[in-house]
C-alpha cells in the first residue's frame, strides 16, 4: 500500500466516523452536508475518468446528473417508487444518452468537444424546462424517496449516509480498477499521444466512447442519489454552471488522481458553504460570495495546478 492509498483510506475512515460523531454533538447538519459532498464526489469521480484519464474535457457532465435525477422523479411521479427499478433506469438512461451524445462528440476533440458537450447539455436543460408535466422551470418535489423493499430506508439520514458512503467507496475502487486495467492503459495512452496509439494499431474511438458511456452511467447514479438527497429536482441540476462546478472539483482536487475528485468536491462545497454561511465573515462577503468564489477559481487555475491531492503526503506518481 503506497502512502497515498493510506491517506485515502484515512480520509474514508474519517468519513465513516461522521454519523456517530454528528449524533453525539447533535449536529445533523454536517451529516447532510457531507452526504452532499460524497454524492458530488461520485459525480466528480465519473468525470475524472474521462477528463483526467481520457483527456476528454466534458463541459456537459451535469446532463447525467439531471437524467439520473429525472429518472427517479419521473417514475415516482407515475407512482413507481421501487428504488431498484428507479436507480436501474437512472443508470441505463444515462448510459443511453451518453452513448448518443458520445457517438457524435467523441469523434471531435479539443475545443469542439468542449462546446458540443456543453451544447447538448443545454439542449437537455431546455427540454427539462419545456416539459410542463414534470414541473417545467419549477421542477418537482419527490413525494416518496426510493423504496428498497424494506432493505434500507432512505428517510433514515444515517442509513442513507452509509449507502452513499458505500457507493462512493465502490466507485473509487471500480474506477481505480478500470484505470489500471488494459482498457484503462489504452485510454490513458489516447490521452498522452493519440498518434502513437494509432500507430501501434489501436483505434481510440471505441475506447473513448466506452469510457464516456461508463462515466455517464456512474454520474446518472449520482443524479439518482442527489434527487433523493434533496427530495426535489429541477432543470437546474443540468445547468451549465453545474457542469463547470464538476470540472472545477476535478481540477481543484487534482486531475487524474484517485483521491482528487473526493477532495475537490469537499473543497468546493465546503468553500461555498463557508463563504455563504460562516458568521465570522462580514455580511458583504456572505451576500456576494460568488464574486470571491470566482476570484478563487481563477487563482487556483492560474497558480495551484497540482490541486489538493498534490498537497497530500506520499509519492507524486500514482
Amino acid at each position: 500500500m503506497t502512502s497515498r492509498t493510506a491517506t485515502l483510506m484515512a480520509i474514508l475512515l474519517l468519513l465513516a466516523a461522521v454519523p456517530p460523531v454528528a449524533a453525539y454533538f447533535a449536529e445533523p447538519f454536517y451529516l447532510d452536508l457531507l452526504r452532499r459532498v460524497m454524492i458530488f464526489a461520485i459525480a466528480a469521480i465519473s468525470l475524472n475518468l474521462i477528463l483526467g484519464y481520457g483527456g476528454m474535457v466534458s463541459f456537459g457532465h451535469a446532463a447525467y446528473l439531471g437524467i439520473g435525477a429525472y429518472a427517479v422523479g419521473v417514475l415516482s411521479h407515475h407512482g413507481i417508487d421501487n428504488g431498484w427499478l428507479q436507480w436501474g433506469v437512472a443508470i441505463g438512461a444515462s448510459a443511453l444518452v451518453a452513448a448518443a451524445i458520445g457517438s457524435i462528440s467523441v469523434r471531435t476533440s479539443g475545443i469542439y468537444f468542449i462546446m458540443i458537450t456543453l451544447a447538448f447539455t443545454q439542449m437537455l436543460y431546455y427540454l427539462g424546462v419545456s416539459i410542463a408535466e414534470y414541473g417545467g422551470d419549477d421542477g418537482m418535489r419527490l413525494k416518496v424517496r426510493s423504496q428498497f423493499s424494506g432493505l434500507i430506508d432512505l428517510n433514515d439520514p444515517t442509513a442513507f449516509y452509509y449507502l452513499v458512503f458505500a457507493i462512493l467507496v465502490l466507485s473509487l475502487f471500480l474506477t481505480r480498477r478500470i484505470v489500471d486495467s488494459r482498457f484503462g492503459l489504452v485510454l490513458r495512452a489516447t490521452r498522452s499521444n493519440e498518434a502513437r496509439t494509432r500507430a501501434i494499431g489501436l483505434s481510440p474511438y471505441p475506447f473513448r466512447l466506452t469510457a464516456f458511456i461508463l462515466s455517464g452511467a456512474l454520474c446518472g447514479l449520482a443524479g439518482a442519489l442527489l434527487a433523493n438527497q434533496t427530495a426535489f429536482l429541477t432543470p437546474e441540476f443540468m445547468n451549465w454552471t453545474r457542469s463547470g462546478e464538476l470540472m472545477f472539483m476535478v481540477i481543484l482536487g487534482g486531475i487524474a488522481t484517485t483521491a482528487g475528485p473526493l477532495l475537490g468536491a469537499a473543497g468546493l462545497l465546503l468553500l461555498e458553504d463557508t463563504l455563504q454561511g460562516w458568521s465570522v465573515l462580514p455580511k458583504w462577503v456572505q451576500e456576494h460570495w460568488q464574486l470571491y468564489l470566482g476570484v478563487i477559481l481563477v487563482l487556483v487555475v492560474l497558480y495551484a495546478r497540482r490541486g489538493l491531492a498534490g498537497l497530500l503526503p506520499g509519492d507524486k506518481h500514482e
Binding site: 481540477i251 464574486l291 470566482g294 476570484v295 492560474l302
Partner: peptide, 26 residues
C-alpha cells in the same frame, strides 16, 4: 492563459463569469 490548455482556459474564464455576474449584481 494563452499558453495553457483549453481546460485551464475554460475554468479560469468560468471563474471570470461568476465574478462579473456578481459584480454587476452589486
Amino acid at each position: 492563459l494563452y499558453e495553457r490548455d483549453h481546460l485551464d482556459q475554460v475554468l479560469a474564464t468560468f471563474g471570470l463569469i461568476l465574478f462579473f455576474n456578481e459584480l454587476i449584481a452589486i
